[in-house]
Design a protein around this nucleic acid. Sequence first.
DNA 1: CTGTATCCGGGCTGATACTG
DNA 2: CAGTATCAGCCCGGATACAG
Lengths: 125, 125
Amino acid sequence: MISNKWTALVFYAMESGKIRYGEMLRRVEGISKKMLTQTVRKLERDGLVQRHITPTVPPSVEYSLTPLGETFLQPMKELRQWGRVNYTQVVEARAHYDFAKHSELVQCIRTDIDSKKEDDAKYDH
Amino acid sequence: MISNKWTALVFYAMESGKIRYGEMLRRVEGISKKMLTQTVRKLERDGLVQRHITPTVPPSVEYSLTPLGETFLQPMKELRQWGRVNYTQVVEARAHYDFAKHSELVQCIRTDIDSKKEDDAKYDH
DNA sequence: CTGTATCCGGGCTGATACTG
DNA sequence: CAGTATCAGCCCGGATACAG
């Protein structure tokens, strides 16, 4: 369920209770409207999230966790907690990882310009 | 880290201690050699997994969790436990989800043949 | 405000062949 | 046994435009 780019982040956005669509769009940094809608739809389909529409003009839509969704909160929080605690260790490990260890075709070219930051930016989280 | 198809499953394969490459290939159902290698490499890079090579002929390679990886075991186990406990509820929710609720172009065609099972198979886990 | 429709590119993924 | 190399497909995800 959470093995994709946005589900976990969207899920976390609802941990404190009801939240509107636009608010999630701002809270979940970097997500597009399309992916937000697609993600909450799947969570709704799975019974973790409920949608509440207030038919005003313009309409207002609030999302919140169902009782089932609430039970999923604890394991997800622990997951996040682990990440927060061990984030630096993982970053450290990545920085020290010797790519030459497994690659025959090693890029040995090292320019004077420190390209480390650019490389780090390319790592997936 | 686990927001992709195989990482969590590969990680679980190492929960009981050292395990060989070929054994993981069999244990993690459906994974290809390429994806297994790619996944364990990332876990190694992140410092969660260590690789131990016995240079016999043919070679033997054992993978195991590092101390850091061991600390990740608990949150991951709770995640899995949640899945096992609530699996049927999620399946139930999916079965009852009314796709027409959000779709303008509803596929109303229902053949006499029960296509439900095929549809279910297409759902991503 | 809360979406949907459409297009499109890149990366994930699988299949197959090859190697020490 | 434990990989690597290469290729091709396809879905995920982003950008943009449009709508109720």
